[in-house]
Computed example of a mutant assay.
Amino acid sequence: MSRTLSRLPALVLVILLSGCGIFGKEIDLTEGWSAERLYAAASSELDSGNYQRAIEYYEKLEARFPFGRYAMQSQLDIAYAHYRADEPEAAIAAADRFIKLYPQNPYVDYAYYLKGLVNYNRSVGFLDRYIPTDPSQRDPGSALDAFVDFSILVERFPDSRYSEDARQRMLYLRNNLAKHEVNVARYYMRRGAYVAAANRATYVIERFQRTSAVESALEILVDAYRALDKPELAADAQRVLDLNREAGRFIADQPQPGDVSLARRLWDYLSLDEN
C-alpha cells in the first residue's frame, strides 16, 4: 500500500508534463489570425520549402474562411505544395477539387496545367533529373495522363499563359509515346510475333506522324514483312522508307522541355499582394 502511494506524485507529474492534450485544449498559435495573416504565413512557409507546414496553414484558412479570394487561392497553393512535397496523388486531388468547385474561374487553366506538370514529372521520373535514361522504356500511363491534361488546357484555353509550354511538353510526350510503341514492336520481333510487330509499326506510322519514331517503325515493318514472307509488302515499306529518307522528311527527337519554376507565381497569381 505504501509503495503505491509513493508512486502517486510521480504519476501526477507525468500527467502534468504531458501537456494539455488530456485535460485541456491544445494551444493553437494561429487562433484569431485573419485570413490575410494566415495566407501570408502559409505562403512564407511555401517559399521556404516547408511544404507540410504551408499545407497546414492553408487548410486552416479554408476551414475558418471558406469564402473569399484567399480561400480560393489556397486551394491552388495546396495543390502546388503537395506537388513540391512529392505527393502527386494529393496534388492532383486538390487540383481536381478546384476544377470541380470553380469550373468557370478565370484561373482554372492553372489547375489543368498543374495537373499536367504533376503527371509529366511522374512520367519523367526521379532518376531522369540526374542520370540520362530513355523514358520511352517505362509504362506510358503517367505520360498519357499528362498529355490529356495538357491537351485539355490547350483546347479550352488556347490563349492561356501556360498553353505554349503545354504544347512543347505535348510534342515531347507524343514523341516518347511513339517510341514506346516502337519498343513494343521490337519486343514482338525478338519473340517471333511478326504479325503483332507489323501491326504496332503500322499503328505508329498512322497515328504518330511527324515524330522521330516513324523511321524506326518503317524499318520494323520491312523486317516483319520479310519474316512473314511477304516480299511485295516489304518492298512497298522499303520504298516509302527510302523516299522519305532521300527527301529528308524524318525529324529528330524532340528535346525535353526545361523545368518550370512556379515557386513565386503562386503568390502573384491573383495579384493578392497588390491590393
Rank of each mutant, 00 (worst) to 15 (best):
R3T: 10
T4A: 08
S6R: 07
S6C: 15
R7N: 01
L8N: 00
L8H: 01
P9A: 00
P9I: 02
A10V: 02
V12K: 01
L17D: 02
G19R: 00
I22K: 11
G24T: 15
E26M: 12
E26G: 11
E26I: 14
D28R: 15
D28N: 14
T30K: 15
W33M: 15
W33C: 10
S34T: 10
S34F: 06
A35M: 07
E36S: 11
L38S: 03
D47G: 12
S48G: 12
R53V: 14
Y57I: 14
Y57S: 15
K60M: 08
L61M: 05
L61N: 04
A63P: 05
A63D: 12
R64K: 14
R64L: 11
R64P: 10
F65C: 02
R69L: 13
Y70D: 09
M72A: 12
M72P: 13
Q73C: 13
S74W: 08
S74Y: 06
Q75L: 14
L76P: 02
A79P: 12
Y80D: 03
A85N: 04
D86R: 11
P88G: 03
A91L: 05
I92P: 02
A94F: 02
D96K: 15
D96G: 10
F98L: 02
K100L: 09
Y102L: 01
N105D: 13
N105E: 13
Y107V: 11
V108D: 01
V108C: 00
D109A: 04
Y110R: 13
Y110Q: 13
A111N: 05
Y112V: 15
L114Q: 15
K115V: 07
V118F: 01
N119H: 09
D128N: 07
D128M: 06
Y130L: 10
I131D: 03
P132T: 04
T133I: 11
P135V: 04
R138P: 01
D139V: 04
D139N: 07
S142V: 13
F147E: 08
V154N: 00
P158T: 03
R161P: 01
R167D: 03
R169Q: 01
R169A: 01
L173D: 06
N175H: 08
L177S: 08
A178Y: 09
N183M: 14
N183A: 10
V184G: 05
A185T: 13
R191I: 15
G192E: 12
G192Q: 11
A197E: 05
A198T: 00
N199K: 04
R200F: 00
T202A: 03
R210A: 10
A213D: 01
V214T: 00
E215K: 12
S216D: 10
E219Y: 05
L221K: 08
A224M: 14
Y225R: 13
A235E: 14
A237S: 09
V240A: 07
D242I: 08
L243H: 05
E246C: 13
E246V: 14
G248P: 08
F250H: 01
I251M: 06
I251F: 09
Q256K: 06
Q256S: 09
L262Q: 13
R265T: 06
L266G: 12
L266I: 13
D268T: 13
D268I: 09
Y269C: 05
S271F: 12
S271T: 05
N275L: 15
